[in-house]
């Protein structure tokens, strides 16, 4: 799949933002006033910024509001509805926490649940697609949710929780890669079933429909950078999980340095997750490539 920067930015940032919102909704950390303002500003900035970035790849962004209508069948529509609902609930909750020193617990719980549900709906947009076996796995939502929770804990300064969640997220990441690498082969779809000619012999794409490229090849048959996949995976793992874990585990009592290390951990985590997300798209094989002999 073509790794569109807008979608990578969106899923990375909004995943982190909603993860932080989930922790804030649970009252972790239990802050109020200006400190709470900063936490909520970061969370809303990431979540809303991500959502806005996602509209950049649309052909007609001015009609994006119509996407709230088909929640009965469409995970993309559900994502839009859930995101807006989560942001509204958490917005009201934030007003209470910041300006009135009030923590409306039930509202926070609901907002946290909706924030995580939004991340789940994002993951289901990809996981529902049978056409991309590498995405069509239970590990896809597991990966999105575990990344969001680990990043949220990291941003919320919940160090002990963050360490546990980072370990889980890293393990899910490794499992996702392991299962994903054989997903297309195990799906049973190949050039033989695509053309219906497989029972007659070995099928080979002889001539493409056109000499030039087309939308399908540009969007679905991305092969650039696959050769660096192994290195990029190491970078994603190192920056996303190993480095933040190491920075969290450094014994440090100076508050300023502790905060600096936490900031570094967040930045490293962001770089790692963005790299992982780039691979998520760049390595995904759409079965339409079979018709072009490109798998």
């Amino acid at each position: 799949m073509h790794p569109a920067p807008s979608v990578i930015l969106f899923t990375t940032l909004s995943g982190l933002g909603f993860g932080l919102l989930a922790f804030l909704g649970l009252g972790l950390p239990d802050v109020s006033g200006w400190v709470a303002f900063v936490f909520f500003a970061i969370a809303f900035g990431l979540a809303v910024g991500g959502l806005l970035a996602s509209t950049f790849h649309l052909g007609h962004p001015e009609r994006a509001w119509k996407a709230f209508s088909q929640w009965r069948t469409s995970w993309l529509s559900r994502e839009g509805c859930s995101a807006v609902a989560a942001l509204i609930l958490m917005g009201i909750y934030a007003i209470g926490v910041i300006f009135m020193d009030q923590r409306w617990g039930l509202l926070g719980w609901l907002g946290a649940a909706l924030s995580l549900f939004t991340v789940f709906t994002t993951s289901m947009i990809y996981a529902q697609l049978k056409t991309i076996p590498r995405w069509n796995m239970n590990l896809t939502p597991a990966m999105f949710l575990s990344f969001s929770l680990a990043g949220g804990a990291l941003l919320a300064g919940q160090n002990t929780t963050a360490i546990v969640l980072l370990l889980i997220a890293g393990a899910v990441q490794l499992a996702y890669w392991k299962q994903g690498d054989t997903a297309l082969a195990n799906s049973g779809t190949n050039i033989g079933t695509a053309t219906g000619l497989g029972s007659r012999g070995k099928v080979r794409a002889f001539e493409p429909p056109h000499t030039g490229s087309n939308y399908l090849l540009r969007e679905f048959v991305h092969v650039v950078g696959r050769k660096h996949a192994a290195k990029l995976r190491m970078l994603a793992l190192g920056f996303g999980f190993v480095l933040p874990l190491a920075l969290l585990l450094v014994p440090m009592h100076d508050v300023v340095i502790k905060h600096l290390l936490a900031l570094l951990a967040v930045i490293a985590h962001l770089i790692g997750i963005a790299t992982s997300r780039w691979l998520f798209f760049a390595q995904a094989e759409h079965v339409v490539g079979l018709y072009y002999g490109k798998r």
Partner: peptide, 15 residues
């Protein structure tokens, strides 16, 4: 009504 998100093309196995 089409916003050009491309998800339908992603969902189609046949291109």
């Amino acid at each position: 009504d089409c916003i050009g998100c491309g998800l339908c093309a992603w969902a189609c196995p046949y291109g």
